[in-house]
Amino acid sequence: MAAANPLITADAVEATEFMDLTRKYRVTGVPKTVVNETIEILGGLPEQDFVRAALEMPDNEPPTTA
């Protein structure tokens, strides 16, 4: 996603190394993705489902990012 849009930054964080972040974001299972500190996506999702969740797109609607 980061490679496709200059506004996106993607960090892969090794959860056991950074326990402070693991606690802060309540990571109880992996993979867990936190988007802009607010959106939480737990588990591995199919590509489209993941992007929809990360962009907070309503089901079957085009993205609303404005």
């Binding site: 996603m1 980061a2 490679a3 496709a4 849009n5 506004l7 996106i8 930054t9 993607a10 960090d11 892969a12 964080v13 090794e14 959860a15 056991t16 972040l21 693991t22 974001y25 990571v27 992996v30 993979p31 867990k32 993705t33 936190v34 988007v35 802009n36 500190e37 590509e47 489209q48 992007v51 929809r52 990360a54 962009l55 797109m57 085009p62 993205p63 990012t65 404005a66």
Partner: peptide, 27 residues
């Protein structure tokens, strides 16, 4: 090369505000 579905890629390219993803995993 970005190996994503064209529809997904279009959604991502339409993002117009900063997005910070943090993906937690274990080895």
């Amino acid at each position: 090369k970005i190996d994503l579905d064209p529809q997904t890629l279009a959604w991502i390219q339409a993002v117009d505000k900063p997005l910070h993803l943090q993906v937690f995993s274990t080895p």
